[in-house]
Amino acid sequence: MVTPCPSLGPPAPYVRRNVTHPASLSAWARLLGRYARCIRGRRRDENRKRGSGMEIHWSHVEEISEDERHAIEARLSALAAGHTDMIDLRIVGRGTGHHRHGGKEIRVACQVRGREIVAVRSADDLGLALDQAIDAFEREVRKLREIRSTHRDERPQNPPYLGIVDRVLHAAGYGFIVTDGGEKVYFHRNAVHGGLEFERLTEGDRVALNIEAGEKGLQATTVVPAPPGVPAP
């Protein structure tokens, strides 16, 4: 006699498991990266529209939210508006390990007219350290501008150096001038004034300029047309 097998009941319902393929994760990462670059590009465009031309670079500040970064960038853009002395500003975070002064540190650094201004602050919270560092940086920039404004009348009306444009990188926003004394000087598009247009500068144009020592060598703080009738050496 054959004993029938007991019933196993109805089959278990099929459950679809959502397993994300690694390729999909890579696609999402690329999409988010493009979105972040787009946002940064829009903010750079906003800075240029305000007349500052300044670019802000963030490093190791993952704890700082996008809203907090946007608020800080708005403060710095307001500080740079109407001026051409601030170009590239860097904000770098790191852990200090010093519990007495706070375990998080923010360093804000920028070249302002050939002088590097650096503000460093530490706190237990990275956002607090950022606010304090930005406050200190703003004070130093305003102090430097006030000092230079006081001595502005003592400067000669026309830039004291003459030279010719040696190279212009229009897409990058900078170029080089060779002075009549044979020195090669870097200049940024924000230094071009006096009726000159950076987009129209070409090699061989005769210019007058002010020169200051920068972090990586000589740089022109002002580039204007050369006085008429002044021959090249």
Score class of each variant (00 low, 15 high):
Thr3Gln: 07
Pro4Leu: 08
Ser7Asn: 06
Ser7Gln: 09
Pro10Glu: 15
Pro10Val: 06
Pro10Ile: 03
Pro10Thr: 08
Pro13Trp: 07
Tyr14Met: 13
Tyr14Val: 15
Arg17His: 08
Arg17Glu: 04
Asn18Cys: 05
Asn18Ala: 11
His21Glu: 14
Ser26Gly: 14
Ser26His: 12
Ser26Trp: 10
Trp28Thr: 05
Ala29Ile: 01
Arg30Met: 03
Leu31Ala: 05
Tyr35Asp: 05
Arg37Met: 04
Cys38Phe: 04
Arg40Asp: 14
Gly41Glu: 06
Gly41Lys: 00
Arg44His: 01
Asp45His: 03
Arg48Met: 08
Lys49His: 11
Gly51Thr: 08
Met54Ala: 09
Met54Val: 06
Met54Arg: 00
Glu62Cys: 07
Glu62Tyr: 06
Glu63Asn: 09
Ser65Ile: 05
Asp67Leu: 07
Asp67Gly: 04
Glu68Asn: 08
His70Lys: 08
Ala71Arg: 07
Ile72Asp: 06
Ala74Glu: 15
Ser77Glu: 08
Gly82Arg: 02
His83Tyr: 14
His83Arg: 15
Ile87Lys: 12
Arg90Leu: 10
Arg90Ser: 15
Gly93Met: 05
Arg94Thr: 08
Thr96Lys: 10
Arg100Gly: 01
His101Met: 05
Gly102His: 13
Gly102Ile: 11
Gly102Gln: 14
Gly103Lys: 01
Gly103Arg: 08
Gly103Leu: 02
Val108Met: 07
Ala109Lys: 11
Ala109Met: 12
Ala109Ser: 15
Gln111Thr: 13
Arg113Thr: 07
Gly114Asp: 04
Arg115Lys: 14
Val118Trp: 11
Arg121Asn: 14
Asp124Asn: 13
Asp125Cys: 03
Asp125Asn: 13
Ala129Pro: 10
Gln132Asn: 12
Ala133Val: 02
Ile134Glu: 13
Ile134Val: 15
Phe137Met: 10
Phe137Gly: 13
Arg139Cys: 06
Glu140Phe: 00
Glu140Trp: 00
Glu140Ile: 00
Lys143Ser: 12
Leu144Ser: 13
Ile147Asp: 12
Arg148Trp: 07
Arg148Val: 01
Ser149Asn: 15
Ser149Glu: 15
Thr150Gln: 10
Glu154His: 06
Glu154Ser: 08
Gly163Phe: 12
Ile164Asn: 06
Ile164Val: 14
Asp166Arg: 15
Asp166Cys: 02
Arg167Tyr: 05
Leu169Gly: 01
Tyr174Ser: 01
Phe176His: 11
Ile177His: 11
Val178Met: 04
Thr179Leu: 14
Thr179Lys: 12
Asp180Trp: 12
Val185Phe: 07
Tyr186Thr: 07
Tyr186Ile: 06
Tyr186Pro: 03
Ala191Ile: 06
His193Tyr: 02
Glu197Arg: 13
Phe198His: 04
Leu201Gln: 11
Thr202Gln: 12
Glu203Arg: 15
Gly204Phe: 14
Gly204Lys: 15
Asp205Tyr: 13
Asp205Glu: 07
Asp205Thr: 13
Val207Trp: 10
Val207Cys: 09
Leu209Lys: 01
Ile211Met: 09
Ala213Trp: 03
Ala213Asn: 09
Glu215His: 13
Leu218Glu: 13
Leu218Ile: 07
Gln219Ala: 03
Gln219Phe: 01
Gln219Ser: 01
Ala220His: 07
Val223Trp: 05
Ala232Met: 10
Pro233Ser: 10
